[in-house]
Amino acid sequence: MNAVRTVLGDIRPEELGVCDAHDHLFVSSPRLPGQELNDARAARAELEAFGSAGGAAVVQWTPYGMGRRAADLPALSRATGVHVVCATGLHQAAHYAAELLTEVRGGLAEVFVSELTEGIGTSGVRAGLVKVAGGFHVLDTHARWTMTAAAEAHRATGAPIAVHLEMGTGALDVLDLLCGELGVPPQRVILGHLNRSPDLTVHRQAAGAGCWLAFDGPSRAHHATDWRMPDAVHALAEAGFGHRVLLGGDTVVAAARSVDGGPGMPYLLRRVRPRLEATLGKEAVDRILTDNPARAFAADWHREAGPA
């Protein structure tokens, strides 16, 4: 069945609703000491605020080993009425202790497939996508390893693959690897952080290849490209690629949550949405927030259990 795999089970794509296509309720990393998202009450308040602003779904891109708290997600989704999609996958090596990487070195694809089909740990929560990452303008050995495992997991399950592009760079290298060498259909690949490198030529090339382009991260105080994002999205729409665009908030530190004084998840609908509507029109933005994520995160889940 073609479905979006949420933490409460599979749903029809049209049930997803208005979607924050890239965000985090929980995340921790040694690169962000003391800034972890690890408070369940704050996560619930943030989801409630997003729902009150008109949001219906949040895709959490937090991968394996980074404090996903998968067992807490079903209760949060039930309590708030907001769909939540959880990720498996692996981020850049800098986000992990060496011992953790050693643990999964011999069977990373099997970890991904197990979390997509059987569940994450003992939680029973099944992931709905695989998240991996590139480097700044390069794909190092770690990135190639994780993307190869992601491609294997995709072939075993049908799961979409979401890619963190460091500072928005390396999009075409990622597509060369995933869709060229590894044979993943481009419509199963989501490229994140395109707003951080507003290269309109690369955007059109990536969209023309058939992948999804995520513009996310208005919560990031150290990225000064928000003002360029509407022009970049408008340029894609004018070129006929509005149907390949996704929008997200990418809240990764506690201070960025709306409940802690930051813009948080509601900002996507409170400020980004009307700003884009002024540029693209309401109908186009509605499609970007509903129809596009429904297609990007839906999969034909053709394997339900067992390792790759």
Results as ranks from 00 to 15, higher is better:
1 M>C: 02
2 N>S: 09
3 A>I: 04
15 E>H: 12
32 L>E: 12
41 R>P: 03
43 A>C: 10
45 A>H: 05
45 A>Y: 00
46 E>M: 09
47 L>Q: 00
57 A>R: 00
65 G>H: 05
70 A>N: 03
78 R>S: 15
89 G>E: 05
90 L>Q: 09
90 L>E: 08
92 Q>L: 15
95 H>Q: 08
96 Y>V: 15
98 A>R: 08
100 L>A: 04
100 L>S: 10
110 E>C: 15
110 E>W: 01
112 F>A: 13
114 S>M: 04
115 E>T: 03
117 T>A: 04
117 T>R: 05
131 K>G: 11
133 A>S: 12
134 G>P: 07
138 V>E: 03
141 T>C: 02
144 R>N: 06
146 T>G: 11
149 A>S: 14
149 A>E: 00
154 H>Q: 15
157 T>R: 11
158 G>Y: 04
159 A>C: 15
160 P>L: 03
161 I>H: 02
163 V>E: 03
166 E>I: 07
172 L>F: 05
175 L>E: 13
177 L>P: 10
179 C>M: 09
185 P>W: 00
187 Q>F: 06
190 I>L: 15
190 I>V: 11
191 L>F: 07
195 N>A: 15
196 R>A: 15
198 P>A: 02
203 H>Q: 06
216 D>Q: 06
219 S>V: 13
225 T>I: 14
229 M>F: 04
231 D>Q: 10
232 A>S: 09
233 V>Q: 04
233 V>A: 03
236 L>N: 00
248 G>Y: 06
251 T>D: 10
261 G>D: 11
263 P>C: 14
264 G>Y: 06
270 R>T: 14
271 R>G: 13
274 P>Y: 06
276 L>A: 05
280 L>H: 09
281 G>Q: 01
285 V>M: 08
286 D>Y: 00
292 N>M: 08
294 A>E: 09
297 F>V: 02
299 A>Y: 03
301 W>D: 02
